[in-house]
Amino acid sequence: MAPADPSRIAKLNADYARAIDDDRLEDWPTFFAASCLYTITSADNYRQGLPAGLMYADSQGMLQDRVAALRKANIYERQTYRHLVGLPAILGEKDSGTIAETPFLVVRIMRDGHMDLFATGRYLDTLVEETGSLKFRERLVVCDSSRIDTLLAIPL
């Protein structure tokens, strides 16, 4: 498989972050391949090989369900994120796709104007070409801290 172009990965990351920060959550699943895995964990859990995630979606449907729950079922105060996403480091090519690691920082803005540095970490991605575009086969969100303030509603 041809290695993915770093600028295409950077564009995918930028589009991904804008979709979340602009509250176009319905677009969020479209950045993933038809067969996919999305999880959020912490550096400690990752280092210890503990598999549980704060969010865990191993299908497109589960990504869509997360958005549907946020829109229709869950109660949480109105809030938005601002993602700052670093440059992807391409770590190699595997049969499963291109392996890339990208650092991120997310500021959370609450409805009363309170802002805090909500999460930092790295995306550990496996990227594949699907129907002419680059998609996440796997996006493992490894937060630097295991401590989450109050709740984590919107995906990182």
Binding site: M55, T150, L151
Partner: peptide
């Protein structure tokens, strides 16, 4: 999969968090 229900991002537990 079912752990999506609980914890800080849990479909259920996030509400108990706030």
């Amino acid at each position: 999969r079912q752990l999506n229900l609980v914890g800080p991002a849990g479909y259920v537990s996030m509400e108990d968090g706030c």
